[in-house]
Structure formats: structure tokens, C-alpha cells
Amino acid sequence: MSLTSRHLLGLQGVPRDDIIKILDSAVSFKEVLDRPIKKVPTLQGKTIVNLFFESSTRTRISFELAQRRLSADIVNFAASTSSLSKGETFKDTARNIEAMKIDMVVVRHQSAGAPHFLSRIVEANVINAGDGRHEHPTQALLDIFTLREKFGMLEGKHVCIVGDILHSRVALSNIYGLLAMGARVSVCGPATMIPRGIEKLGIEVYYNIDDVLPQVDALNVLRIQLERQEGGLFPSLREYHQYFGITRERLEKADRPVTILHPGPINRDVELSADVADSEHSVILQQVLNGVAIRMAVLYLLSQVK
């Protein structure tokens, strides 16, 4: 019943059976969240550190809530520092925290590979809460969980990830997880934001949202970071919205209902028009609740790995 790895560093290479274990376990934890008393003693006596080198209020709150629901003791460590500034190094920070006898570390960092590095220097279980533009496995798991709730199964379902694929940690994790679950996966965005060779992962690449829209069951719409425009990768938010924004008008051209996911926070009327964000096909708020359940499942299952 336990997972094959004691860390969750990414979804690349994670076996389908492990993903299913996490999803199934999240179903049980979601039931807990519906109870009047939303707390179980599963991780009582365990100490978890949330090590955030990059601010991410949503992800941190979701992890923290999951940890509280499981009765774990929590330490939050937020540092905007990197080894570039004069502060303590990442390694020293990690070693210091480890010295306090902790059981698990949840880490968010600007550098790809930071969780992998951490897993080599601490004994605790390491959970990647987003590393650079690499992976964000719990986000992808909650997206997949939400889609499974909606569709019952993922085999043959077509999910298109829309937006800035190049800088996204959500995209890669989703691609690995969805492919493992038998879904058809495509990405769509401005050509400047599609990383080289991504099609080699076994996915389709589109540059025109209206080409792919009629074929999809779900769109996972990524947040557009305003600093990307400053970097010149696209000329204006106006043009982005015109060509890649998901609007009701666009969706009506599809002959079937298209489920809308978004990892949040939404830039309304940039990547997603307000009426779509709030429509009956949007599962954005379910994603938020499912995020807590998924993170409870991941924390619980990793704590079981010897």
C-alpha cells in the first residue's frame, strides 16, 4: 500500500499505481473535510517544516491546512534569500532545520532541482511544492484528481494546457501525470512560450487555441506572469487575451462542454474571462478544496514509506 519513493520530487517517472494510490487516498481524506470535525490523528507527533524560498500564499496555506487536518506539528520557514544574497546558504538552512529533528520538509524554491539537492542532504521526506520552472507535483495531482471526479476516468480524455508553458512548473507535472493516467495531452500558447522539444514527451503542440478547442475535454489555463511581457516574450496583455484568452464566445464554438481548470490566482480577463471563471464548467474552486485532500494523501502516504 505504500509508495515506491520516500520523496515526492516530481511526477516524472512516478508509476501509475502510485498516482492512483494518492488519488484514492485523497478520496478518503476529502470525506474527512466534509465532517463537522475535520481533523484526524494520522500524523500526530510528526513535525513538518514548510520551507518556502519563494512566496506562494496559496500553496503554503493548502499544505498548512492539510498538515493541521492530519494533526502534525508545523514550522513555517519563509526566506526570500538565496545563496546569491549574503544570507545563510540553502544547505545551512536545511541542515539547521534538520537538526531540530523534523520528519518531513515541504519546499518551494526558485531553482529547479532544489528539492533534489535537499533530499540528498536531509534525512526527512522531501515534498516539492514547486521548483523553478521544473515541477509542482501536488498541483498536478490535484488537477488530475479534480478531472477524475469530473470524468470518472482519464483514459482517452483530452486535456490542453494553455499559456506560458516555458516558465510553468504546473505544465510539466501535469503532462507526466496525465500521460501516466492514459489521457491525451496537448499544450497551446504563444510560440515564444513553448519550450524546445516538449513534443518529445508525447504531447501535441498548438499555437492557435481555436484549432485545439473543438477537440478538448478540459483546459488547464495557466496564469500569465506580467513580468514575461516585460521580458518581451509577448507584446501586450491585450493581444494575449485576444489570441489565447479563454472566453465564453470561444468555448461556445466547441460542440461539447469544456471543463476549465486554473491553478490560481486568476488574472481575470487576461487568460480567462470573468464569465468563464465563474461558469458551471469551471472547477477552479473544487481544485482548491481538492488541493487540501491531495496534500493530506501525499503527506500520509510518504510518512508510511520506510
Binding site: 529547479a112 523553478g132 510539466l172 524546445r196 516538449i198 514527451l201
Partner: peptide, 8 residues
Amino acid sequence: FISTILGL
């Protein structure tokens, strides 16, 4: 492709 999948 490798930089793409490593997010670097």
C-alpha cells in the same frame, strides 16, 4: 529537450 524537462 533536456533543459525543457529539467526546467532549467
